[in-house]
């Protein structure tokens, strides 16, 4: 009954501006739409995955103003004015991000479902700058589950990139 009443009342869409992977977008969004659904269903950016839709797996990890968050728990309207980076904005075929190359080189995935979230999360972790040891990488990447259990190689790939001075300089 409650739902009928609200639908009848017509929850109004809100006008928001987002910069997604460098492209400015103006969108009309109902308040209940999550950032993840907006990216996947409206903007056709299906790289970010919906694993659980509850903040429990990390497959939906994107960067909002450079910080990693779970897009499934973000209301799109609350991100008005934000810069969003998804895996599609991280690298392109032929111009891969060092982490994407390292994931391939280290065989850091099997099915690949968790991979976009893993890579966005690893970029966020490197921006944060708190992981120095393997144990710290494992702990600070624990918000990204991998059902295929590729953890060992994922950690190797991240350590490889973090250890490369070229990346360190580029990040500065």
């Amino acid at each position: 009954m409650e739902i009928d009443r609200l639908t009848a009342a017509g929850p109004t869409a809100v006008s928001i501006a987002l910069k997604v992977n460098g492209v400015e977008r103006r969108l009309e969004v109902p308040p209940s739409v999550t950032l993840l659904d907006l990216l996947r269903e409206r903007l056709d950016l299906t790289g970010s995955k919906k694993g659980c839709d509850q903040g429990q797996c990390g497959a939906c990890t994107v960067l909002v103003n450079g910080r990693r968050v779970n897009a499934c728990l973000q209301l799109a309207v609350m991100n008005d004015g934000a810069e969003i980076t998804t895996i599609e904005g991280v690298g392109q075929p032929g111009a891969l991000h060092p982490l994407q190359e390292a994931f391939i080189a280290h065989d850091a995935f099997q099915c690949g479902y968790c991979t976009p979230g893993q890579i966005c999360s690893a970029i966020g972790m490197m921006n944060e700058g708190h992981a120095k040891t393997e144990a710290e990488i494992r702990e600070l990447m624990s918000g990204n589950l991998c059902r295929c259990g590729a953890y060992g190689n994922i950690v190797d790939a991240i350590e490889d990139v973090m250890g490369r001075s070229a990346f360190k300089e580029a990040a500065e």
């Binding site: 903040g55 990890t61 990693r68 968050v69 779970n70 918000g143």
Partner: peptide, 9 residues
């Protein structure tokens, strides 16, 4: 508590 992503939000 939680994960790095959740703590950021």
């Amino acid at each position: 508590g939680a994960s790095a992503q959740l703590r950021n939000a």
